[in-house]
Structures are given as structure tokens and as C-alpha cells.
Design a protein around this nucleic acid. Structure first.
Length: 871
RNA sequence: GCCCCCUUGGUGAAAUUGGUAAACACAGCGGACUUAAAAUCCGUAGCCUUCGGGCUUGCCAGUUCAAGUCUGGCAGGGGGCACCA
């Protein structure tokens, strides 16, 4: 029978308008139903959506639509992470305005997203570059300032001398600016910092409770926060007269190795180093060199452990008369611990390298198992393994942990200069978050610099501080700095002429609280606290693994800081987190080494292998590896092309099929064709039913058998299974289950002679099928639903209730193993007792033959699973 | 250097969490329909085999009646952090 083909180009826009006109996906904050907040990481408006977006937003949409059908009040918003450097770069290259460029991109991408048929509440949409949004971000900043969660300090930054701007670490490539290519300098600038370290312990502890997060991400955050327990030790100066303070303070996680100490080392920026440099030109030059070298990866890998003696010495706290020389060393970081260490070369590789270079003593104090105390020596590898203390007086014979405690106990009870010489301390790797950026296209930091009053916050009533539109990018640097009038302002405190802060906030600030703003995006305050607290945490957050640390950690900090400032009451921003894999594609390379886009090629099957030829000219190109879609490798596929050729449902179906969502998904043309064919196949199933004039609401007889029973059981089972799959985000499994149901339905050939039972069961299966596929391919589902004679939208239709009785099997086919190998099968009633199963097993030929007249050593019957006869 | 993850047919994968390995799909092969093609439908399909069966989840051991799943070791691939004292 000929049926018309499904035409997504006509159908999809029609349903999109329907959903939009009826405001179906707009969410009411006062809805009494249980809430469910599903969110995908909002996009940066770079210009066009890419396949990664399609995958991300499809997954979120499946969850949103499913939860809607399950009766939740679902919040599923969308917005734009719209501040950032690309807009400024575009402005410089194309002579456009960052604002115009950004909003144009948003318009394009909004249309693209809308053509995907996502169940988004567009009424809550905002961009972080909307004055309305960054106004509230400035309010947050002032509140944080008030709550002592923001401060200013001088710190080292990556400075690009050509572009005259600070660069983030990620923007420094091999020690050079990513745009200018100029060697990056370390500069000291006064920057604003958020006190994320106030929450170090809590951010670490609460990871244990985030059981809806991937273990991998939790681990990455644990490592990033980097908690270590140790001892802070005051070393008394041997010649106290020469320095101002009486002690040099260090942090160590290995106080057990104190008897192995042979030198002290301080960072180049350490006050003691600067003090010593005053009278030591050689040292001053060395400090300068350290500063220039910076801390780039490349520099670190090649840099040798170098240092210069300060001439100062400290007394060993436990060895009478022993003195340790103090060096300034290039491998000591000023911003970890106290910026000073004691060096124990035998048990720390860096210390060992340093000691070998400068001929310092290397005295082992931990003896590894199986080594002899008399002969154990350290050569070029420091010993960091477990062992027993020796050469260490009162510590001898103790384990490392015992010795750590023993040293801590001892030093805590010695006072030097009025304080305990040792103090147990916890140290974190996590640093405060520097948010100042010397850029135009970001949220202005709402403070004023007054010659008399210093740094003065802008009055809340004077907010927002808006970015000026009349700027130019004809020179590098921050255009706000050279704006003719914008900077000039009266001091909020004394009223005298003062200057605005021209730094803007890191764009990560913008994305650290947008999920809270979505709960009440038009509020005059950053949030309406009660509303935000009701919606948060986000139940399911979905995005890329690349944000495992920064964005997700910053957001966790913001949830806490906003809690302190009274803007919301939620321990964590994201209850469930899912990190999806990338979208990849084959790569193609011409003989001259140039990457070729798949759109420029045709493919042929030759002798079992695929070959690729240029459409233009026909020469063969090499098929290369499968890699992340990227412009540089030219292996991208534009979602717009796919949406126009195949429709949104096909793209969505492809994204969900086959590959588990956390893994990388390879986009292939063949796969897209396959997805399209399946969309058509489902349509035909419904169209043929309709064309036969069958009753979609026929009553199902009380008793069924044969194919009707089989189909009805599978339909109900599929409802149950897909429900579980979607709950666990196992979209690929859900897709496989749809195929199974459709395959069975396709086997049922309905015609005039079909009995009423199968017709009725088929009709029920069709209506279930429409609901089941709705979260995944909603346009087709709606269309099919209408073909069944329904008048309401599937978007307002509940998930079906499966009948549990239909999931129970009366008879079970159990495999029978003999000595662990499958040798027979046995069909047993589900309620068979142990004895009758045993009897049946013993009667089997295979079992009789194996036993050869004897009795089994063991008979294992796992109910409803398996039988194993051990002979 | 430290920490973590992954490895199943030609390919993407599934496996009720220790219980019939390979569901489902893609690609393939055979067939039907067609003047032909597309589309569609039916069938087939891990490997070896002397047709009895044997082997099979990167490799080697172990635990168990039973291992893709648990334990130990090895190999390959990927990721995170990285002078963090």
C-alpha cells in the first residue's frame, strides 16, 4: 500500500509554532506540582550552533519532556553566555561593535535552536550581556563586598605586552600570547578576588554528598582543591640581629623527615629574599630572572633547580648547634604554604636535585623495607616510599605517620618568640579566584577610585554601571581606559572627582549564577530568594566535561556566597550532573596536506574499503582518524544543513542512538540516513493503520493469546523499560527498545481478516509508541498522535501506566548448565517449587548422560535465572 | 612524576550489577518486488570445526558451582593535575 512520506519540513515548523503559540513550555513558578529543573550549559553566542550543542540540548530535552509527561512542573530555560573575548576580537577584525556582533549571533542561534523543537521556556531567556542581567551581577558584587567575600590584592598575572591585556592561563600557549604571539610577562597588578578559599573545606566535604555527579568530576575537583595536612614550623634565625622577624616560617607535609633537613629555601618574592637582595646584587639579579621566567609549563619543564644563598641561617629546632643555610630558590612558590620550605633531599626529588647542584648534605631518615640501615644510600632518586624512621634520635623505629605525630606533638610544646614552634595545619591548593579582566566586553566592576577615599563601592542606587557604546578598538588594550568621559565620576563617599574602575569581571562570574537567575529572570534583585530556593538545586545539569573544574567549582562557590548574602538557600547548585561526550567525525587530507571538508567529497566502496574523492577534480584524498569536530581540521558538519535536509527529529534520533551519551559520538552520513529511514518507518506504521480505517480506541478483550498477548506484553514492558532508561539517561538503550517494539509491530500484518483482539492491542501499542518517542522525536510523535484521532497535544499527555501483571512471565525458559557450560534449556512455570524444578532437571537427557547413573555433586538453582549441575 | 578511567563481532554497542555474551543499530551478504533504480519487505550473519562439538569480552593468573562483571599482575589507549613542600 502506498502511503505518503513524512515531510519534516512541513510538519516541524507547524508543531514548533503550535507549542510556541500555546505557550506550552512556559513554566509557572506557582504551579503546585513537584518541581523538576533541567538545564543544559548555556551556549556562547559564537555565531552558529554546532553538533555538540545539538547533542547537549537534545539530551536535556528528552529529560524535560519525559519529566513533563511524568507530571512534574518542569523548568527548562535557555540563555546566552554572551560576554567574552571573541566579541572583542571580531570587533577588531571586522570593525563591528561587540554588542551588535553578539546580539546578531544570538538571533541566528536562537532561530537554529528553535528549529530543533526544544521544549524550552523562551520567556525566561536572557543574555549575560543584557544590562538587566549584569546590573544584578553588580548588585551581587556589592553584597559580596559587604559580606567580606571580595577583596583587592596585588598579584602576578600573565601580561601580553602587545595586546596590553591580562591573559588567562589557558590563553598562554608555550609562554606566548595566543593572539599576539608575543612572550608573556609576569606582571604584578592589583586585582579583585573572590574568597573561594573561605569555602575550601566545605567545597571538598560536600563532594561526598554529590552522588548525582560523575565520580570522575568529583575526583577532579578533589584534586583541584588539593587538601593536605601538615605542620607549620617556625625556624629560629641563627643570627637574629640581621633580620626583623625572629623566625622563618615553613609549611611541610613531611615533618617526620625533619632530621634529614639540610637547607632552607624561600621563594623569590619572599620578604626575606627581598631583604637579602638589598645588599646582594647577584641575588637581586637572580630574583629578577625568576620573575621573568614565569611559571609557564614549558619554562618549568626545562628549568633546572637553581638558587642563591642569602647568607642567613636558621637553627635546627631539634638538633642543638646545627644550623641550616637559607637559599632563594626558583622552585618555591610564594602563594602556596608560606613561600618557604625546609629541604630534605633524601626524601624529596626537588630538594635532592637542588642539594646535588649545590653540594648540600643528603641524609636519609626513612629506611624502606628490606634495606639495611648501614648500607642504604640515596643516589639520584629521592626515596618517597613507606618505611621506618632511622638516623632520627627519638623518632627511630617509628612509622612515617607515627613520626609525623611525634614531631608535631614535640614542636607544639616548644615556644619560640612567644609562639609554639610547630602548629598542625591544613593547606589547600585552591587559590582565591582573581576576577579582574582588562577588557571591555564584560560586566563592569562597580567601584570608584578616589584619591582621598581610596577604593569606594558604587552606591547600589547608582547601579547599573553600564558599558558605554561609543568605544573604539583601533588600539590594543582596554577601550574603557581611553574613553573620553566614562571614567570620570564623583566619589560616592566624598563627592570629589574620581575615576571608575575600568576592569570588568571574568566571564566565569556571569555563568556562576545564571541558573539561579532563570528562576525569576525579571526580578529587580538578583534572585527572589524564596523562588530560587524552591527551584534549586538544578535537578539535572548537562554539559561538557571541559567544565569539570572551573565553571562547576565557581558555581558551587556562588551558591554558598549567595547563601551568605541572602539571595538563596541551597547547599549546592547542581544535584545531578551529566557530562556528555564530544561529537566526532572522520578527517580527510589531500596530498598537499590540506584538510578537506566532508562536504567536498564523494565516497565509494571499493573491494571492501571506502575511498574518498574530491567532488571538484575527482582526485582521491586520504581518509584519516576520527576526531573532535573542529574548524581547523575541517571535519565539522553544520547542524543547519542536517536540520534542513532531514529535519530535527532525524538529527535528534541520531544523537540519541547507539552511542552511550557520556562517550564520544561519531557523526556519519550513513547513520543520519539510517535515522531518517527510521523516522519514516514509524510514520508508515501510523499512516497504514489510519488508512485502513481501524479504530484507535477499540476495547481490548479481557483475555488474550498468541501474537496479541505477545505484542501487548512487549508494549507494556517497553513503557516500563524506557522509563527506567531515561531516568538513568540511557538514551541509547531507550532507542533500542523503541526498535524492538516497532520491529514486533511491523511483523503484525493487520488486514481485513485480523481479529478484533490484535487490532485493539495494536491500537494501544501505537498510542504508547507515540508517547514513548515524544521526548526524543517530538514533532513526529505529535503528528502520529493526531493520526490516532487525538485532538490534544502530546506535550500535555501523561506517560502511560503500564500494567505490572503483563510484565510477569508465567513460564520461564531457564538455561541448564553442566559444570558451568550450557547444555540444555528447560521451560518451567514461574511458580514452580524447588523440588519440581530438580525433578525436571534430572530427567533431562543431557543431565542423565553427564551423570552416567551417579548423583550430582551439587545442584544450583538460581530462581528465574539459571540452573547449574555440578557432576 | 602523581592520580583516574577505558579496552566486548567488520563498526557503534547491549548484558537485569556474579547467572544463556553479542539485544538493538550501522555496514555486509542472499532473496522478493521493479523494465531498471531508489524506497520497501523477507532471510542471513562472532570465530574454528572432522558437523560430535570446540573456542570467544586486550593478555596472564586467581576467587567461585558460575567471571565481560570481583581480586592481583601485564600491555595498549585516553584523561586530569603538575616545582603544591
Amino acid at each position: 500500500m502506498a502511503t505518503e512520506r513524512y515531510n519534516p519540513r512541513e510538519t516541524e515548523p507547524r508543531w514548533q509554532s503550535y507549542w510556541s503559540d500555546k505557550k506550552i513550555f512556559e513554566t509557572d513558578n506557582d504551579d503546585p506540582r513537584e518541581k523538576y529543573y533541567v538545564l543544559e550549559m548555556f551556549p556562547y553566542p559564537s555565531g552558529r550552533i554546532h553538533m555538540g550543542h545539538v547533542r547537549n540540548y537534545t539530551m536535556g530535552d528528552v529529560v524535560a519532556r519525559f519529566k513533563r509527561a511524568k507530571g512534574f512542573n518542569v523548568l527548562h530555560p535557555m540563555g546566552w553566555d554572551a560576554f567574552g573575548m571573541p566579541a572583542e576580537n571580531a570587533a577588531m577584525q571586522n570593525n563591528t561593535h561587540p554588542k551588535a556582533w553578539t546580539y546578531e549571533n544570538i538571533a541566528t542561534m536562537r532561530d537554529q535552536l528553535k528549529s530543533m523543537g526544544l521544549s524550552l521556556d523562551w520567556s525566561r531567556e536572557f543574555a549575560t550581556c543584557d544590562v538587566d542581567y549584569y546590573h544584578r551581577q553588580q548588585m551581587l558584587f556589592l553584597d559580596f563586598l559587604d559580606k567580606d567575600l571580595v577583596y583587592r590584592k596585588e598579584s602576578k598575572v600573565n601580561w601580553d605586552p602587545v595586546d596590553q591585556t591580562v591573559l588567562a592561563n589557558e590563553q598562554v600557549i608555550d609562554g606566548c600570547g595566543w593572539r599576539s604571539g608575543a612572550p608573556v610577562e609576569q606582571r604584578n597588578l592589583t586585582q579583585w578576588f573572590f574568597k573561594i578559599t573561605d569555602f575550601s573545606q566545605d567545597l571538598l566535604d560536600e563532594l561526598d554528598n554529590l552522588d548525582g555527579w560523575p565520580e570522575k568530576v568529583r575526583l577532579m575537583q578533589r584534586n583541584w582543591i588539593g587538601r593536605s595536612e601538615g605542620l607549620r614550623i617556625h625556624f629560629e634565625f641563627a643570627d637574629a640581629a640581621s633580620v626583623e622577624s625572629e623566625t622563618l616560617e615553613v609549611f611541610t607535609t613531611r615533618p617526620d623527615t625533619l632530621y634529614g633537613a639540610s637547607f632552607m629555601a624561600v621563594a623569590a618574592e619572599h620578604p626575606l629574599a627581598l631583604k637579602a637582595a638589598e645588599t646582594n646584587p647577584e641575588l637581586a639579579a637572580f630574583i629578577d630572572e625568576c620573575r621573568k621566567l614565569g611559571t609557564s609549563v614549558a619554562a618549568l619543564e626545562t628549568a633546572e633547580k637553581k638558587g642563591i644563598a642569602t647568607g642567613f641561617k636558621v637553627k635546627h629546632p631539634l638538633v642543638e648547634g646545627e644550623e641550616l643555610p637559607i637559599y632563594v630558590a626558583n622552585f618555591i612558590l610564594m602563594d602556596y604554604g608560606t613561600g618557604a620550605i625546609f629541604g630534605c633531599p633524601a626524601h624529596d626529588q626537588r630538594d635532592l636535585d637542588f642539594a646535588r647542584t649545590y653540594g648540600l648534605p643528603v641524609k636519609p631518615v626513612v629506611l624502606p623495607k628490606g634495606e639495611d640501615a648501614a648500607s642504604f644510600e640515596i643516589d639520584t632518586t629521592a626515596n618517597t616510599d613507606d618505611g621506618v624512621l632511622f638516623n632520627s634520635e627519638f623518632l627511630d623505629g617509628l612509622s612515617i605517620d607515627e613520626a609525623k605525630d611525634a614531631v608535631a606533638d614535640k614542636l607544639e610544646n616548644i615556644t619560640v618568640g612567644g609562639v609554639a614552634q610547630g602548629m598542625r595545619q591544613v593547606n589547600f591548593r585552591l587559590r582565591d579566584w582573581g576576577i579582574s579582566r582588562q577588557r571591555y566586553w564584560g560586566c563592569p566592576i562597580p567601584v570608584v577610585h578616589c584619591d582621598d577615599c581610596g577604593v569606594v563601592p558604587v552606591k547600589a542606587t547608582d547601579l547599573p554601571i553600564e558599558l558605554p557604546d561609543d568605544i573604539n578598538f583601533d588600539k590594543p588594550g582596554n577601550p574603557l581606559d581611553r574613553h573620553p568621559t566614562w571614567r570620570a565620576v564623583a566619589c560616592p563617599s566624598c563627592g570629589k572627582p574620581a575615576k571608575r574602575e575600568t576592569d570588568t569581571m571574568d566571564t566565569f562570574v556571569d555563568s556562576s549564577w545564571y541558573f539561579a537567575r532563570f528562576t525569576d529572570p525579571k526580578a529587580d534583585t538578583p534572585t527572589t530568594p524564596q523562588v530560587a530556593s524552591d527551584w534549586l538545586p538544578v535537578d539535572q545539569y548537562i554539559g561538557g566535561i571541559e567544565h569539570a573544574i572551573l565553571h562547576l567549582l565557581y558555581s558551587r562557590f556562588f551558591a554558598r556566597a549567595m547563601g551568605v548574602a541572602g539571595h538563596l538557600n541551597a547547599d549546592e547548585p547542581f544535584k545531578g550532573l551529566f557530562t556528555q561526550g564530544m561529537v566526532t567525525h572522520e578527517t580527510y587530507k589531500a596530498d598537499d596536506g590540506k584538510w578537506i571538508s566532508p562536504a567536498e567529497l564523494r565516497f565509494e566502496e571499493e573491494g571492501g574499503s571506502r575511498k574518498a574523492y574530491l567532488l571538484d577534480g575527482g582526485s582521491e584524498v586520504k581518509i584519516g582518524g576520527i576526531e573532535k569536530m573542529s574548524k581547523s581540521k575541517r571535519n565539522t558538519v553544520d547542524p543547519t544543513d542536517i536540520l534542513e535536509t532531514y529535519g530535527a527529529d532525524t538529527a535528534r534520533w541520531f544523537m540519541l542512538s547507539d552511542t552511550p551519551p557520556e562517550r564520544d559520538l561519531e557523526w556519519t552520513a550513513a547513520g543520519a540516513d539510517g535515522a531518517f529511514r527510521f523516522v519514516q518507518r514509524i510514520y508508515r506504521l501510523f499512516a497504514e493503520f489510519k488508512s485502513q480505517g481501524l479504530d484507535p480506541n477499540a476495547a481490548i478483550p479481557a483475555t488474550l493469546d498468541g501474537q496479541a498477548l505477545e505484542l501487548r506484553k512487549l508494549a507494556h514492558k517497553t513503557v516500563s523499560l524506557i522509563e527506567q532508561d531515561i531516568e538513568k539517561l540511557g538514551f541509547n538503550r531507550a532507542v533500542a527498545r523503541v526498535y524492538e517494539l516497532v520491529n514486533l509491530m511491523a511483523k503484525v500484518k493487520l488486514n481485513d481478516k485480523s481479529d478484533d483482539a490484535i487490532k485493539a492491542v495494536f491500537a494501544e501499542a501505537l498510542s504508547y509508541l507515540a508517547i514513548l518517542i515524544n521526548p526524543m522525536i517530538p514533532h513526529l510523535a505529535e503528528e502520529c498522535w493526531i493520526m490516532l484521532g487525538n485532538e490534544t497535544s502530546l506535550s500535555n499527555t501523561d506517560w502511560p501506566q503500564f500494567d505490572p501483571a503483563l510484565l510477569v512471565e508465567n513460564e520461564i525458559l531457564m538455561p541448564v548448565q553442566i559444570n558451568g557450560k550450557k547444555r540444555a534449556e528447560l521451560t518451567i512455570p514461574a511458580d514452580a517449587d524447588q523440588k519440581s524444578i530438580e525433578d525436571a532437571v534430572m530427567k533431562l537427557d543431557a543431565v542423565q548422560n553427564a551423570l552416567n547413573g551417579g548423583t550430582p555433586k551439587k545442584l544450583i538453582i538460581v530462581p528465574k535465572r539459571i540452573i547449574n549441575v555440578v557432576v
